[in-house]
Amino acid sequence: MANRPLAEAKCLPAALGLGGLAAVLALTEMLIRLGWVNRFIVPLPSEVFVSFERIILEENVLSRFLATAGEALAAAFLVSLTGVALGAFLHRHRLLRRACESWVAGLAAAPLVLLYPLFLVIFGRNALTIVMIGFVSGLPPAILKTVEGFAGTPKVLLDVGRSFSLSPSQLFWKIAFPSALPVIFVGVRLGLMFSLINIVGVEFLINFGGLGQLVNELAERYDLAAMYAAICFVILVSVFFFIASEKLERWLLRSA
């Protein structure tokens, strides 16, 4: 590889990736057309591609997208506010932190989405249940990373503040918080990822709300091509969201 011209070496991987994807799709198309793969189990990729237009025009994708985005936004708001506040609180009270941090880590390892039937009973089959699932599943990483961020503040920076006679609240807002902010943001982003995954998942499971429900409905209608297209659409939306949040994080870290 090292001998290749630079420009070629740069595009080659991307070309190989896209080419590989195209090859898999073409192979699938061929196998189905040859009758080696049942077209009632796997629809033709070309049909799926055509169905994109259908789901966008006929299935209210925009309003579904907005419904999911609204739920995600509400959960994001709750996660960042509560997570950062609780994390800061745990950091300030060391004994409490030592008592609770491993509990929070345990919750982060528990399949919290499974609470959804419980939330269905408590909140009903509505957007609130979905938002609460998003909130609960995104909270532990936000708390953990906030605590980690504060704990990682270099002692010397706090000493600088103290040498300039800063008050405790100035120490917090001028030094500890900005110093912890990059790690806090990593935690919030992680939390939002979990929130979004579980929001779409629960939409699918309880057949309510936005994009997740779309997949479920199409599956129930047995509209194969459209269902595959809807799945691809959801994947595209989430991939777009993750790329955007990654870019945002990098930008924030650079300007931090």
Binding site: P13, A14, S238, F242
Partner: peptide, 18 residues
């Protein structure tokens, strides 16, 4: 790695249940 890892990286955090 450069060709295919981005796909896995971005498909990783999508809702698999769908």
């Amino acid at each position: 790695g450069k060709a295919f890892e981005p796909y896995i990286h971005y498909l990783g955090p999508t809702p698999k249940i769908i």
